[in-house]
Design a protein around this nucleic acid. Structure first.
Lengths: 133, 133
DNA sequence: ATTCTTGCAAATCATTTGCACTTTA
DNA sequence: TAAAGTGCAAATGATTTGCAAGAAT
């Protein structure tokens, strides 16, 4: 399915900017920030503004086709993989990746009175590259 | 054990500021931000600066007597409870609490090549108070 | 005396907002 | 031609930094 169709199906008007932002996000597992995506797309779409990237990513999250990850407190990272998986952040190089070979623990059952709408599992430590230095 | 002894045992010089910041953090389950703690202690210690609160909380995290929670991307919250438990953030009122009656899923086994040093489980949804409105 | 701790003011950095311009249905 | 989408510049808000003053060993 084309990105255009995919977005339209989710009720998202497929503008050139949105198409390229979604494709760039879906093409990586690096969990980029809005700013990183902006820098990446700048050469291709020189007029693309930060505002559009920020707004578009929020739209994707609202429509359920992207996840927003608050890992460091200073920046938001995004992920087009919305399935349950464990995020890992390396304390040395800061890279965010998915922990391979591990199925994320299921979200806990909601205690009475609560409505749990989403859940995330997040681990921190040293990645293989930094561990071997 | 007094807070003074407690801090000294962890290799933290127990200054008046540090003692009061730790006691304020340990006395609540509201997972306050540095700024919230600063406002809370201001009447009691009028000269207390934000810088000191920020630095002290980072020190507590480094020494392992507090947890740093990045939940929203815009602010860091802190927790003197360092045991494994599930954090919950209400999408409506923004309050951060511990999910009661639930033991946190264990951290996943580290895949080969990784060193996992800490893990957090984080859920989002509606709290009982907002759900009943 | 020397080292650790604190506080102030200014700087930084990601993100948001207000508003005008442009594109699309 | 009305509505939706985009972009720029300025504002915001949490956090950090540089550095001088104060407290503790």
């Amino acid at each position: 399915m084309s990105t255009t169709e995919f977005l339209r199906e989710r009720g998202i008007q497929p503008s050139q900017q949105r198409i390229r932002i979604y494709e760039a996000l879906a093409a990586t597992t690096a969990h980029p920030s809005a700013d990183t995506l902006h820098r990446e797309l700048q050469p291709e779409i020189p007029t693309l503004s930060r505002t559009t990237v920020y707004g578009t990513l929020e739209l994707f999250v609202a429509k359920g086709i992207a996840q927003r990850l608050a890992l460091t407190g200073s920046e938001l990272r995004f992920d087009a993989n919305t399935s349950a998986h464990v995020h890992f952040r390396c304390r040395s190089c800061g890279a965010v990746s998915d922990l391979p070979g591990i199925s994320a623990p299921l979200p806990p059952p909601a205690p009475a009175g609560y409505r749990v709408e989403s859940a995330q599992f997040y681990a921190e430590g040293l990645c293989p590259r930094c561990l071997s230095l």
